[in-house]
C-alpha cells in the first residue's frame, strides 16, 4: 500500500523519458507540479476545472487534463508534456496549416492530437470530432486545427497503400 501522512513528500515522476524527483503536497495537481515544480511551462493553465484542455498531457498514451489529476497519481506512469514531443508529424502539420493563432491552446491540442493518431491512425471524422471537443480554442481556429490533424491521418493512410 502506498501511503503518505506527511504534508510534503518526495516523489519520482517519469516525464518526457526522464526520472524527475520533486517534492509535492499530496493536494498538488499534476499541472502545478509540472509547471512550478519541474519548470515545464509548455503545459498551460486555463480554467483549472477540466473544461478547456489547455493543460492536457499524455499519461501512458492517454490524454489527461493535468488540472484534474493529483501529481501523486502520476507515480509509476509515463508522462509526456509538449516539451517531450519533437518534430512529430502533428507538430509539423500544425505549422504547415497555421493551426494556431495566439498559441495558448496549442500544446493541449497537439498532445491530444498526437495521442489520437497513436490510438486511431485511420481515425474517421466522428472520432476526430469526439476527441477534439475536449479542447477549446478561444481564437476559434478550429478549421485549421481540423485540417492539420486530417492531413496527418491522410498522409499515414497513403503511406500504408
Amino acid at each position: 500500500m502506498y501511503s503518505s501522512n506527511s504534508k510534503n513528500l518526495n516523489i519520482s515522476l517519469s516525464i518526457n523519458d526522464e526520472e524527475r524527483s520533486v517534492v509535492v503536497r499530496p493536494a498538488n495537481t499534476l499541472l502545478s507540479v509540472i509547471r512550478e515544480g519541474l519548470g515545464l511551462t509548455g503545459t498551460k493553465p486555463g480554467c483549472y476545472n477540466g473544461d478547456c484542455g489547455a493543460c492536457t498531457v499524455d499519461v501512458d498514451g492517454v490524454p489527461i487534463k493535468s488540472c484534474l489529476m493529483l501529481a501523486v497519481e502520476g507515480v509509476g506512469k509515463k508522462i509526456t508534456t509538449i516539451e517531450g514531443l519533437r518534430n512529430t508529424p502533428v507538430q509539423k502539420s500544425f505549422v504547415e496549416h497555421f493551426a494556431f493563432q495566439c498559441g495558448y491552446c496549442t500544446p493541449g491540442f497537439i498532445i491530444n492530437c498526437n495521442a489520437l493518431i497513436q490510438k486511431h491512425p485511420n481515425a474517421k471524422d466522428e472520432i476526430i470530432e469526439e476527441w477534439l471537443e475536449s479542447n477549446i480554442c478561444r481564437c476559434t481556429g478550429y478549421k485549421e486545427i481540423e485540417e492539420a490533424i486530417k492531413s496527418v491521418i491522410t498522409a499515414k493512410s497513403e503511406e500504408q497503400l
Binding site: S3, N5, K7, R25, A27, N28, T29, Y48, L70
Partner: peptide, 20 residues
C-alpha cells in the same frame, strides 16, 4: 490550487481500504 492539505493513501485491497 487546493488550499488545504490532505494525506494520500493507495491501498491494494478492499480489506485495507475499509480498515484504513
Amino acid at each position: 490550487m487546493i488550499q488545504f492539505d490532505f494525506e494520500y493513501y493507495k491501498p491494494a485491497s478492499i480489506y485495507e481500504a475499509v480498515q484504513l
